[in-house]
Design a protein around this nucleic acid. Structure first.
Lengths: 291, 291
DNA sequence: TTGCATTACGAAAGTCGTAATCATG
DNA sequence: CATGATTACGACTTTCGTAATGCAA
């Protein structure tokens, strides 16, 4: 179970081909074949069926372990290296699209005012990638958002030991087309909307919604991507509903209306993610964001 | 960051000596020296100070990552192997001393009655070890106990992906010497006992208690080991207080008295731990224990 | 001097690439 | 057949053990 072989294995599984994986990893077909053979010999199990190249049941099981394992390995390496590195005046912030709220942007601005020389990079990406970037030390701090019961933690993806701290909670609204029969209501119960058609979007994962509220929430349309304006346009055009933070869809925006959720009590929560921070700008910024 | 080198590193760090680690791992002194050198070269950092052999700050950081990482690696391997193995009529159960309650023993007995050919092994050990045994597949099921707020999960140590399920909660009592001024009370508030002297014992971790109740609970005596009778004897002799499940210290036992805790609301909770179980005796037993 | 880590070096094993071979759609 | 995985084999690299060397109590 050499990580080297594991990396090759996940690449082959992803590519569905030995030769494609060889090209991607800069090896020859033959080397890949030998590595997979070595891994299979080590475990005493076939991991891939050939022609077409697909993981066997055991291979699928290994895949589930391998990715997070390799991530943790990179994270450990990065953390040790970082712990010995000199603090730098460059900060990288990884944020989910709805995680970087106006309030947090303000706090960041105030913190920067006190440290004018501080270079800041902000990267927007999905929650798993945020966690991975923070774990691997590519980002010093991460901001992930999600639905939660009030003051409940978010449970970000496990990418190794990491500190989390809530940095903001705000109300949640149902995004409805302006002409929707319920658009005029003062508040809505989510249970009453479980049979409506919903948008599947990374900005509001339906799986999370079902875990918090219950079954239902059938998918009307899938939206891939980060852009909130696209999402609101889809809602406005009646393709389906979604949930958004109240500050994002305050009143009526571009043909969509946000109606507060009265039950169950839900909040849009933002959490700060970081590894063990050495004293320096990153730690200061973490304090500033925590408020 | 080869796991092989990592294993060598943690062994050397634990032994505090290259030669002792060499003996333990079945290598020569020279090989160990070369492996540590390779790891240090890979990270570009000194990890051990020599004479005496002690981890450097970077080495300490690496140690924190290495142990759980290696555990997860073994766990992944075991899980893949297990997923492909035929179900066997032998079950191993890893339990913490207070995790294997009478109620659970009964459920186990009933489950065995239905499957007379089932061989069962029960291993008692600490919570980390239970988690590790389950993760590595040495045990099919684990039972860990701990203090928690009612219906709150226990958060067992992270040893890889694992399913947890509550299998029992019962009240908690403060164990007091029979002659203690408070021994006659119907109930006690823990906050009032924060200044009393407490026993440090793995059966009731004070760190957990402090996290749930607050600071205080100074240590009067440390007890290492699993034996509840020893613990009760220590309480009876006035060496300090501890918390126990109500069924363990129901009335007065051997000079100690259990007084219910009225505030905060705490329970002694037992959780079942297991990996993904293939259909078979282990899964059946898990169902039986869950009740 | 003694115990223990390091270095030098040769033997053994492992890993990769080239090229031939094999299997399957 | 043709595409793509496997096998054979040689070159190179890595890793270990033996033995000599270095170093601090």
């Amino acid at each position: 179970m050499d990580p080297h072989l594991l990396t090759t294995f996940v690449t082959v599984a992803r590519c569905g081909s030995f030769s494609a994986a060889a090209a991607e990893l800069g090896y020859t077909q033959s080397a890949i074949s030998q590595q997979i053979a070595a891994l299979e010999a080590d475990l005493g199990l076939p991991l891939l069926s050939r022609r077409p190249v697909e993981p066997t049941p055991a291979g699928r099981r290994l895949l589930e372990h391998a990715e997070p394992l390799l991530l943790r390995l990179r994270a450990a390496r990065a953390d040790v290296l970082r712990s010995a590195a000199a603090p730098r005046d460059r900060i990288a912030l990884a944020v989910t699209p709805l995680g970087f709220t106006a309030a947090l942007a303000d706090r960041l601005a105030r913190a920067r005012a006190a440290r004018p020389r501080l270079e800041v990079t902000v990267v927007t990406c999905g929650r798993e990638r945020v966690a991975a970037l923070v774990a691997e030390g590519e980002a010093d701090l991460g901001l992930v958002d999600g639905l939660a019961a009030p003051s409940d933690p978010l449970r970000p993806p496990d990418a190794g030991p990491m500190t989390t701290a809530g940095v903001g909670e705000e109300d949640v609204v149902v995004a409805l087309p302006a002409g929707h029969p319920l658009a005029g209501r003062a508040a809505l119960r989510l249970a009453d909307l479980a049979d409506a058609r919903w948008l599947r979007t990374p900005l509001c994962p339906l799986s999370r919604l079902r875990a918090l509220v219950g079954d239902g929430f059938p998918v009307a349309l899938e939206h891939r991507g980060d852009d909130v304006r696209t999402l609101i346009a889809l809602v406005a055009a009646g393709h389906g509903l979604t949930l958004l933070p109240a500050t994002v869809l305050g009143g009526a925006v571009a043909g969509a209306v946000g109606v507060p959720v009265s039950a169950p009590r839900l909040v849009h929560r933002v959490e700060l993610l970081h590894g063990t921070l050495p004293p320096g700008p990153a730690a200061d910024l973490a304090r500033a964001l925590t408020g």
